[in-house]
Amino acid sequence: MRLHRGYALATIVLLIVEIGIALFVRDRIVRPYVGDTLAVILVYTGLRAVTRLSVPAAALTAFAIAVLIEFGQYFHVLDHIGLGENRLARTVLGSGFDLHDFIAYAAGALIAYAVDYRRASRAPAGTRTRRPSSDSSSTI
């Protein structure tokens, strides 16, 4: 397994932001939509931190994970596995199915893809295909 420190740091920052949103924001825009968009970006950066997935593969995987979790909400998976009353599980995995969430998930995947693709395309010539140097990643 590899650890890419830049993505790991981004994951930690996004996790802190998401926890702040979950604990302190009670509105109809930021918590449900911005939070869901950031959640997909969080999963994306987490995937890129520990895998060698390409930009498109990581974006699609993050989107797919969000979709699976949303369908888990539709089928009340937390209730079926005995975690329906667990506040942490309901906060992390959600508790209510909403078709509008798919828009937020797609937006998160597209934002992650676009930002990372643009960052990669701005890298100096010849650096995009080489393995990252030890100062930006390490092997675990």
Rank of each mutant, 00 (worst) to 15 (best):
R2G: 05
R2H: 08
L3V: 15
L3T: 10
H4I: 10
H4F: 11
R5I: 14
G6N: 11
G6T: 12
A10F: 05
A10Y: 01
A10K: 00
V13G: 07
L14R: 01
L15H: 04
I16M: 09
V17I: 15
V17L: 08
V17Y: 00
G20D: 04
A22I: 08
V25N: 00
V30A: 04
V30Q: 00
Y33D: 03
Y33F: 15
D36H: 02
D36K: 00
D36Q: 06
L38Y: 03
A39G: 14
V40L: 12
I41L: 13
I41N: 02
I41P: 01
L42N: 12
V43Q: 02
T45G: 06
T45S: 14
G46H: 01
R48K: 13
R48P: 05
A49Y: 00
A49R: 02
V50S: 06
T51C: 08
L53T: 05
L53H: 05
V55L: 13
P56G: 10
P56W: 04
A57H: 10
A57V: 12
L60Y: 11
A62V: 12
A62Y: 02
A62R: 04
F63W: 15
F63T: 09
F63E: 07
A64Y: 06
I65P: 03
I65E: 05
A66H: 04
A66M: 05
L68Y: 07
L68K: 07
L68F: 12
I69P: 01
I69S: 09
E70N: 05
F71W: 13
Q73T: 06
Y74I: 05
F75H: 11
L78R: 01
L78D: 04
I81E: 07
L83D: 03
L83F: 13
L83W: 08
E85T: 09
N86P: 02
N86V: 03
N86R: 01
L88I: 14
R90N: 09
L93M: 06
S95L: 03
F97H: 01
D98W: 03
H100C: 07
H100A: 13
D101E: 05
F102P: 02
A104W: 00
Y105D: 08
A106G: 15
A107R: 01
A107E: 03
L110W: 11
L110N: 09
A112C: 11
A112W: 01
A112D: 07
Y113T: 09
A120V: 13
A120T: 10
S121Q: 13
R122N: 12
R122M: 14
A123M: 14
A123H: 07
G126E: 11
T127S: 13
T129S: 14
T129E: 13
R131N: 11
P132K: 09
